[in-house]
Design a protein around this nucleic acid. Structure first.
Lengths: 249, 249
DNA sequence: GAACTCTTTCGGCTCTCCCGGAAGACGCTA
DNA sequence: TAGCGTCTTCCGGGAGAGCCGAAAGAGTTC
């Protein structure tokens, strides 16, 4: 944690972030948005283009496919992605819903794989999509198996409210985590997306280390008590099989 | 094209590249490989971690899932990805082979989507994977519809030989491009991967602008003359449907 | 063709990156 | 446990590189 992290590096990635959020932009646009001199932004964009991580076309700059490349290469190195693969499709087939594999990174839940069942709702879910831990079933599933100190430090911060259902009381969350450990799965009811219910089970390896979570999402209307129980079983089984695969590899 | 592109930016991404290639590394490792002082590398790594684009665990640094995020967001903005979606699965089902969608970026062919048929050979193909244009069917399909001046400048450079079959003679390539335009599809026979045949059709929009290429790859043994012709038809149809979808959107 | 906007170039001042050196952390061996 | 080797982390002063104002160039609009 240096006092002053290399400013150029930070600025470069700030520009990348800005480009990514808006899907691209022109030098002057960025300059105003980031409150930097145009010439400075211009210099950075040149440098970024030089590296190949940004492309220009008609003065519009965009993140290049290099990001995909680096991202996917890295993704392949997560053993859990391979270990879960068949189970993910199996779960999608059995439930017909939207199924994802997530991991925890920097106190956030990040999607690594998506598999859509036949009835799956179209969600804005893609590899790399991230969300706070406390607002989702997979997040809670993972929190339940993280180091208590880290959990505490995470819950101590502002628990952002994303929907009216989002749980922002850390005591309530701690109770839920306890129940996750007992039942082996977590549920969220419209806590991240209104009207959407998610059921998730944590994936642990034989040493008990957290490796991710498998999550099924569907519309409230379709998921009554009985169906939720069914899905919970499917998800738990998938997590279990994945663990076995992990330990084999 | 500034004379001296911001050194910090270039260095930062050099480090990212190195991390990506080796799937992560320690400060001292990078320092030796990149021939930089350890302390310098350390400073950069700190800054990169600060941005969230690199993570550390047990002193091992890795590109974070941010790259996936940026990459995928950008991918979604390519209309051709949506336009081709159903066709890609259709082609995979019909042929049973390995099907990909590629685009051209910075004089390279880049995979944007992969769909594996039931018999598909396992290829090291993932979104973001890149390859020279002249060594692949999709590359040739795209070259055939690029600005002649650009084509010339690309073919004028060193035509890297990847397999003994790779075509490194620009005149031969130019002839092939002509035939691609006539027939509507391109073929490569072990020019990128020995023993592998690929058949690809370019995707153009109504203005005739190049938007990408659809590619089917399979083992030589399975693809005799007749089957190649079949696949060529399937691929051409898929490209055509995609064009229609594109023009609709 | 004048006025405006946005991109690109230029260059000198100043700030910040750079890296040697040293301290600290960790692991290994005896 | 002490001692040694390796790696990470911290520190600070010098010099080189980034920064940005200003102006020129490119492209558009009316």
């Amino acid at each position: 944690m240096a006092d002053t992290p290399n400013r150029s590096v930070v600025r470069a990635f700030t520009i990348v972030d800005e480009l990514s959020e808006n899907g691209g932009g022109r030098a002057s646009e960025l300059a105003t948005r980031l409150e930097m001199p145009v010439s400075t932004v211009h210099d950075y964009l040149q440098a970024l283009v030089d590296t190949g991580y940004v492309t220009v076309e008609d003065k519009v700059y965009r993140p290049s496919t290099r990001f995909l490349e680096v991202g996917h290469r890295q993704r392949h190195r997560f053993e859990v992605v391979k270990a879960v693969r068949d189970e993910l499709t199996a779960v999608a087939e059995e439930t017909g819903e939207h199924v994802t594999l997530l991991i925890e990174e920097n106190n956030q839940a990040v999607i690594l794989a998506v598999q859509e069942g036949s009835e799956a709702i179209t969600l804005f879910a893609y590899p790399g999509a991230r969300m706070p831990l406390h607002v989702t079933a997979p997040g809670k599933a993972m929190l339940a198996h993280m180091d208590p100190e880290r959990v505490e430090s995470i819950l101590d911060r502002d628990l952002v409210e994303i929907t009216p259902q989002t749980i922002t009381d850390s005591d309530v969350l701690l109770e839920q985590l306890e129940s996750v450990r007992e039942r082996g799965y977590a549920v969220d009811e419209g806590e991240r997306i209104a009207g959407m219910v998610c059921i998730a089970a944590p994936v642990l390896d034989k040493r008990g280390e957290l490796r991710g979570a498998i999550c099924v999402c569907g519309p409230e209307s379709r998921l009554d008590e009985a169906r939720r129980a069914e899905i919970a079983d499917v998800v738990k089984r998938a997590a279990n099989v994945t663990q076995v695969n992990l330990d084999y590899v």
